[in-house]
């Protein structure tokens, strides 16, 4: 047998294992990240009238820096691959679009411009670049975490700007998104205006978004650290528990 043929066979087998690892990891991350995202920040993601200037820029980034930090911890420390955050957020976006298109739009017939998801891809690319350039997870938490919070609203602005235009509807001033909310009845969904437009949040009007992003960036830094540690030391752990024999022996000796 030619050495080159043996070598080719070995490489072919190794490549197949690589593909299985990549595909299964991608699917698992979609499953975990999407169920996390939809149940801690999902309402803001489902509806355009929830994509407001007060709470959405706070809730979404701080809840979604979690999986990117954990995956970065493994892909960077073990493989020097600065793609963990982007890999996660691409999976999340895939999972969200599959359901928005097939179910929100295809089954319950809401228009796509009412139910399109937010994107974290630009912020994730920046988070990965910060890690790649600094090679230091603490600096990535401090700088990348801040940028993660700050960049979320601007990088989604192109998509949501048309829906924040003011309109007068039945004598009241509201946004295009609010009017869409009234046009499409969602029997069980709370009216977001009732929750968000209260007290000082309304009084400070235009100044709210910057403060929200500032706050979001601060909490994103704080969230990054424990999730990096969990990724590195728990989810990326290679620990085996003691074998049954050694555990039994220890018990007997005790």
């Amino acid at each position: 047998m030619q050495y080159s043929q043996v070598d080719a066979e070995a490489k072919a087998v190794a490549r197949k294992f690589d593909l299985v690892v990549i595909m299964s990891t991608f699917l698992a991350l979609i499953a975990g990240f999407h169920v996390h995202q939809m149940l801690v920040a999902g309402d803001w993601s489902f509806w355009v009238d929830w994509k407001d200037r007060n709470w959405w820029p706070i809730v979404a980034p701080i809840m979604e820096i979690t999986f990117p930090a954990a995956v970065q911890a493994v892909l960077w420390t073990r493989f020097r691959m600065p793609i963990g955050a982007t890999f996660c957020c691409l999976g999340l976006l895939f999972g969200e679009w599959m359901n928005r298109y097939i179910n929100f739009n295809g089954w319950t017939h809401y228009p796509l411009n009412f139910v399109f998801p937010e994107t974290f891809i630009p912020a994730a690319v920046v988070l990965d670049i910060v890690l790649m350039l600094t090679g230091n997870w603490i600096v990535t938490a401090l700088v990348g975490g801040e940028l993660w919070g700050w960049l979320f609203y601007p990088t989604n602005w192109v998509m949501i700007a048309p829906y924040h235009l003011p309109v007068e509807y039945q004598g009241s001033l509201m946004s295009v998104a609010d009017v869409i909310n009234y046009m499409y009845v969602r029997t069980s969904t709370p009216e977001y205006l009732r929750i968000v437009e209260t007290g000082t949040m309304r009084s400070f009007a235009g100044g709210v978004t910057g403060v929200a992003a500032f706050f979001s960036a601060f909490v994103s830094v704080c969230m990054y650290v424990p999730w990096w540690l969990m990724g590195a030391h728990f989810f990326g752990s290679t620990k085996f528990f003691k074998t049954y024999e050694s555990a039994s022996t220890e018990v007997k000796h005790a």
């Binding site: 595909m23 299964s24 990891t25 699917l27 698992a28 979609i30 499953a31 975990g32 999407h34 169920v35 939809m38 999902g42 489902f46 999972g95 969200e96 599959m98 359901n99 179910n103 929100f104 089954w107 319950t108 969602r186 029997t187 069980s188 969904t189």
Partner: peptide, 21 residues
Amino acid sequence: TYAAYAGASYFTEQDGTWHQT
């Protein structure tokens, strides 16, 4: 992992589609 994706991602958010409607 495909089955987990279908359950935890696709059908779980589909449940949101249903309940909020």
